[in-house]
Design a protein around this nucleic acid. Sequence first.
RNA 1: GCAGGAAUGGUGGAAUGGUAGACACGAAGGACUUAAAAUCCUUUGGCCUUUAUCGGCUGUGCGGGUUCGAGUCCCGCUUCCUGUACCA
Length: 920
Amino acid sequence: MEYNHKEIEARWQQFWRDNDVYRAEIDNSRPKFYVLDMFPYPSGAGLHVGHPLGYIASDIYSRYKRQQGFNVLHPMGYDAYGLPAEQYAIQTGQHPEITTRQNIARYREQLDKIGFSYDWNREIKTCDPEYYKWTQWAFQKMFDSYYCNASQQARPVAELVAHFEKHGSEGLNVACSKELTFTADEWNALTEKEQRQRLMNYRIAYQGETMVNWCPKLGTVLANDEVSEGVSVRGGYPVEQKLMNQWCLRVSAYAQRLLDGLDKVDWTDSLKETQKNWIGRSEGAEMRFKVADSDIELEIFTTRADTVFGVTFMVLAPESKYVDMVTTDDRRAAVAEYLDAVKHKTERERQIDKRVSGVFTGAYAVNPLTGKNIPIWVSDYVLAGYGTGAIMAVPAHDSRDYAFARHFELPIIPLIEGADVSEESFDAKEGKMMNSCGPELDLNGLEVKDAIAKTKQFIAEKGIGKVKVNYRLRDAIFSRQRYWGEPFPVYYKDGEPYMLDASKLPLELPEVSSYLPTESGEPPLGRAQNWATEEGYPLELCTMPGFAGSSAYYLRYMDPRNNEALVGKEANEYWRNVDLYIGGTEHATGHLIYSRFWNKFLFDMGQTVEDEPFRKLINQGMIQGRSNFVYRIKDTNTFVSLGLKKDYDVTPIHVDVNIVSGDVLDLEAFKQWRPEFATAEFVLEDGKYICGYAVEKMSKSMFNVVNPDDIVEKYGADTLRLYEMFLGPLEQSKPWDTNGIDGVNRFLKKLWGLFEKVDLDNRVAASKEELKAVHKLIKKVTQDIENFSFNTSISAFMICINELTSLKSTNAEALETVTRVIAPFAPHIAEEFWHRLGNQGSVVDAEWPKHNEDYLKEDNVNYAVSFNGKARFNIQVPAGTAKEEVEKIALADPNAERWLDGKTPKKIIVVPNKIVNIVI
RNA sequence: GCAGGAAUGGUGGAAUGGUAGACACGAAGGACUUAAAAUCCUUUGGCCUUUAUCGGCUGUGCGGGUUCGAGUCCCGCUUCCUGUACCA
C-alpha cells in the first residue's frame, strides 16, 4: 500500500478529537510541564509557512515531555485586539469582531491541519469579555496600588492614605511621578477631589500629563516599543511628540526587579542583553546648580561626577520647565523662536537632523565646585524625558557637548592627562585627572573611577546633590484613542476618574456607528449610545493597548473558565509558570517586559506564586521569503532567462513563487497568471526559463508567500513538520525554499515502506545491528530534543532508516521503538504504526525509550593514526585494548614506516577510540 | 556610536579541541520504462597524479597566537545580520 498522507492524517486527527487525547487536567501524581507559544494575532492573510515554525518546535517538545511522563499543559489562543482589524473596519464598516472571528476560524482550520497537540478546551481570545474581565480587573488593582521602594513591592493605596493622614509625605520612600512634600495637616485639609488628584502621583495605574508618541495618521498614541526610528511599527506612519493626559502604568517602579529577575531565567544572553539595554540602568549623581542672582536651582543627572571642574555651560531640554524660569527678558524673543522651531519638528526630523542647534537663555548658573558663572543654553539634543531634562555640559569629555561647544565657541577644559581634545572629545572613562582642584575638593592625579566616587561623597556631604540610579525604562502609556480594545472600567465624576464596582465587570465594548474619531476629536467610543454608568456618569472613551490582553494570558490558560479569579489558587500552585516559551524576538522590549511587569505586580498581590512568568525562552528565527524574478526586456513583452539577461536592458519583475519550481518558470502558468503576460514571449536557456531569486520578507506584495495548506495538501502534515525542522537551527533566520522538501517526503515514504514489510504475526528478536541502529537513534534524538537541535534529529532518523533498510529489517520491536521516538515529530504516521502494532490509546502516551549503551559498543575500535596531527591511515583494534598496545599496533602497521621515514617518535598521544597522534 | 550574533562546497547545513563537509537538496552519469513521472544505483569541496585503482597537495572570511593536534580556544581585523540610539 502506498503512503497516503491524506487518509492517514484525516483519520488520526479525527481520532484525537473524538478521544480528546490532548486534554490537560491537574494531576498531582505527575510533574507538570507548561509549554507555551506566543499566541498569534489572527491577521486576514492567514498563516504562512513561517508562522508554524515555533509551533512545531514547541509541539515536538510537548509531546516528548508527555512521553517522558510529564503532565503537559500546551494551550493556544488568540491575541485578538489589534490595529489591522480596526483599520479594516474603518475602510469597510464591518465590525472588527466579525473580521476577527473569521480570521480566527481560518487560523484554527490551518493549525488543525498540522496536527498540533493543543488542548483546545483551554482556548482563549483576548476580545472575549470572559477573558478581558480579568484584564480590567488587574488594571483596577493597579489603580488601587502604589509601589513601596523600601519593601520593593506593590501595596494598597489605602496604606498610603493612612500614612498621609498621620505623617504627610514625611519618611516616604515610594515610586511617584514627582517628589511632593506636604504635612499631615495639609493632606487632611485637602478636599476629596484634591486628595484623589494627589494620589494619582503614586498609583501604579495612573493618569498623567505626559509627552506621548502621537501618531496623527492612526489617530492614537503609541508606546515606546510601538515606535521605531520615528515612525509607527504598524503602518510606518510619522510620530510626533504631544503632551496629553493619558493612563499610564508605572512600569519604571519595577525597573530594578525586572533587571534582577533576568538572572533567574533561562533566556539567551542576547535577549537578556536587549532587555538590560531597554531598562538602561545607570548609576550616577543628581546635582543642583544655583542660578546666578536667583533662588532657582537647576537639577541635573550625570554619570561623570568627576568632570564637574570641566563644566563650562549648561543645557536645558526645550520642554524643560526651567526654560521659562531662567530666561532673561532680553533673550525671551530669541528663546521663543527656537522653541517654536523645535516644536514643529517631528520626532523623526529631530532624529535625522543631527545639526547642532540651540539658543542662549541669557542666564548663568554657578559651578558649585569652582564658583564660576557658566551660561545656560537650550538645545534639543537634551531630552526632556530622561534624567531631569537638564545637563551639565563637559565638552572635553562628551562628544555631544563637544560639538555644541565648538559650534557656539564655548570654552573646552580638558580634565584627563594626555587627552587630546583639539579635534574631538575624550569620552573614555579612564586616565588620571588634572585641572580638577578647587577650594574644597582636589581630584588631580586620581583615576577617573576614584574621582567619581570621591566627588559623589563630597557632593552628598555638602548637600549639593546625591547618589542616584536612573533608568531608561519609561512608564507604559496605556490609553489608545481607538475602538478595538478593552474598555477601561473607569467612569468620571466631577472630572475625576473612578473605578467601576468589581461586580460591574466585565465592562463590555459597546457598538458604535463608525470606527473613526468623532467630529470633536474624541475617540470612537464617543459615538457609543448610553456610554455611561447607571447613575449617568460618563465612561472612559479610550481603550487599552494591544499589550494589555497579552500580559497575563499564560496565567489564564491554567484555569480558563474560572469565574471567580484570573486563575484559581489550586491551578496556579500546580502549573506555576511557563517552563518553555517559544516565540519571536520582536517581543523582546514589548510583550516580554510588560508581561514580566504584570506578573510581578500580580505576585505582589498574592495572585500568582511565581515571580517570573517564563522560565526558559527560545526565540525561533524568522522564515523569510524567497522571491523569484523574471526579466522583461524594456518596452517589450519578452522575458529573458537569468543567464542571458546581461545581454539585454531588462526590468526585474516579481513572479509568483508558486508557478516556479527549482527556479524554473512554468511558462504556461505564467501566461495565465496575469492578463498582460498572456502574450509573453521568452528567451530560454537550455530550453528552460531560469528565474532570479532574492531573500526578502514573506509578503503578498513580493509574491513569495508559501501557504502551509498547500504543502499539507501535497506532501502531508508530517512532511511539513519534519521539513520545517530540517530547514536549519531553530533560532536562526532562514529563507523558505520548498525545493528540499522532497528529501523528507522520500524519507517518510521509505519509513512507510519499511513498515509495510513487517511481519506482525511472526515476531522475531531484533538483531544486534538493528538494536545498534535503533539505540543510536534514541540517544541522538533525546540529546537533540534537549538542546532544541531538531534539524540534526531529522538527519538521525534518516540515517537510522537507511541503516534498517539496508539491513532488510522487518523487526516489529525495532520499528515500535522508532515509532515512539518519531512520534513527536511525525505524529500522524506514528499513530498509524502504533495502532497497527496492536497498541491501544494514543502514541502521545507511549513511553519515551531509553537507550542502552551496551548495544552501541563496538567489537573493534577504529583509530586514525596521525603524524604531527595529520591523519594518515586507520587501524582497527579490539575494543578495550590498552593504550600501550594501541601505540604498538599503530607503529607496527606497514603504513607507519612510510610516514616515520626512519625517525624515532618523540611522543605518542592516544585518545581513546579516536586517534593515535605520533609526533616526530 | 553601543550591545548581541554570524561567516564552512553550487545550496540548506553537520562536526564534546581529535580523520572537516554528516544528513538533505541540486547537478552529472547509469538502471527500469515506448516515453515521462516515480523508484533504485554510482559520483559530487578544489587542485594534481593515474587507463583506472592506489595516492598526493590544499581547504572552514582575513592576520597572528596557544596546542602533539584548531572550523572549534585566545588576540587583532573585515564583512553581514539583529536590536538600540543624542540616555548625559
